[in-house]
Computed example of a mutant assay.
Amino acid sequence: MILIILAVVVFTGCGSDDVPLASVAGTVTMNGKPLSGATVLYRPRTTDKDSDLKGAAESYGKTDENGHYELSVVMTGDTGAVVGPNDVIITLDVFEEILPSFDESGKDQRGPNPIPSQYNSDTTLEFDVPPAGVEDADFELLNPDFKVPDKSAHPARDV
């Protein structure tokens, strides 16, 4: 019986090794200008059949000063993203790194997240990763009121 189980594990594999990956790179802009210091997260869409395989195969990349990013799998560090449809989440690192600073009424003094929710918590962004990979997975974000939060106004605190 143990040999049968071992054979099944060996022949079917486990984890994200069975998930096809392809290299993904692109540029993120905000109001037509490169968005630096952002995290781009690809979350593969799964079915009941493949959820165990793809579930731990999210990929991410950080944008540089030109808004350029390249993806790596979160859990393994492998280059790329899962082939097929992915939901895309884009957040601004500087906002995420600043701890909330609440005033007397309980309002967060950081103000609203400068990246609108339709690009992160309520994302409408998606990308279908082709098997051959892609170098122009670009996203053009819009927010006429965009302003990077002033990190210096919120001194670092121990958590």
Results as ranks from 00 to 15, higher is better:
Lys49Gly: 13
Gln118Val: 15
Val129Gly: 08
Ile89Asn: 02
Ile89Trp: 02
Asp122Ala: 04
Val148Glu: 03
Gly106Leu: 07
Asn31Asp: 11
Val134Tyr: 07
Pro116Tyr: 06
Met30Gly: 00
Pro112Lys: 00
His68Thr: 09
Pro20Asn: 04
Arg43Ala: 12
Gly55Phe: 06
Pro144Glu: 05
Ala153His: 04
Ile98Asp: 08
Ala156Thr: 13
Glu96Arg: 00
Asp122Ile: 04
His68Ile: 09
Thr46Asp: 04
Phe102Thr: 06
Val88Gln: 09
Asn120Cys: 09
Asp128Val: 14
Leu53Cys: 09
Gly67Arg: 04
Ala81Trp: 07
Asp128Lys: 14
Arg157Ala: 10
Leu21Phe: 01
Ser51Glu: 08
Tyr119Gly: 09
Asp78Ile: 02
Pro112Ile: 02
Val28Gln: 03
Glu135Cys: 01
Asn86Phe: 13
Ala38Pro: 02
Val134Cys: 13
Asp64His: 12
Ile115Asp: 00
Ser101Gly: 10
Val83Tyr: 04
Ile2Gln: 08
Ser36Val: 01
Thr63Pro: 02
Gly80Asn: 14
Asp87Phe: 08
Ser36Gln: 14
Lys54Val: 14
Val74Ser: 10
Ser101Cys: 10
Thr63Tyr: 00
Val8Ser: 07
Phe146Cys: 11
Leu99Cys: 08
Thr39Met: 14
Thr124His: 03
Pro34Trp: 10
Asn143Leu: 15
Val40Ala: 09
Glu126Trp: 15
Ala25Thr: 11
